[in-house]
């Protein structure tokens, strides 16, 4: 499981909010993301730090269902990922 990203030009954008969901099992990281995505301005990026393998699939799937944008998932040195999501509305 390596990092993946949906678009090159989005990747550079610094997160406006980081949610630490390390050690938390799905669906908790998704619930945290859904509750807080509106805390960033429109087009702002939220980074979710998660190490539950389900989050790697489920956060991009949540983005698709909720019409937000999965920007990229970067592997963290300590394990898990920083999963970047852009608020679309």
């Amino acid at each position: 499981m390596t990092s993946r990203q949906t678009s090159e030009e989005d990747v550079g954008q610094a997160p406006a909010l980081t949610i630490d969901a390390l050690g938390k099992k799905c669906p908790i990281p998704i619930i945290m993301l859904a509750e807080r995505i509106n805390h960033v301005p429109l087009n702002g990026v939220v980074a979710v730090l998660a190490d539950d393998p389900a989050a790697f699939t489920d956060i991009p799937a949540w983005c698709r269902l909720k019409s937000h944008r999965h920007v990229a998932s970067h592997e963290l040195p300590q394990g898990g990922w920083a999963i970047h999501v852009r608020r679309n509305y």
């Binding site: 099992k25 799905c26 669906p27 998704i30 539950d52 393998p53 389900a54 790697f56 699939t57 489920d58 991009p60 799937a61 949540w62 698709r64 269902l65």
Partner: peptide, 24 residues
Amino acid sequence: GSSCTASTLRPSHVLEAMGVLTHG
């Protein structure tokens, strides 16, 4: 196929491969 129901604590490889929600 959710990970919490698997002995391995990993979500179903089928759901992962499809890129669909694996929890719930």
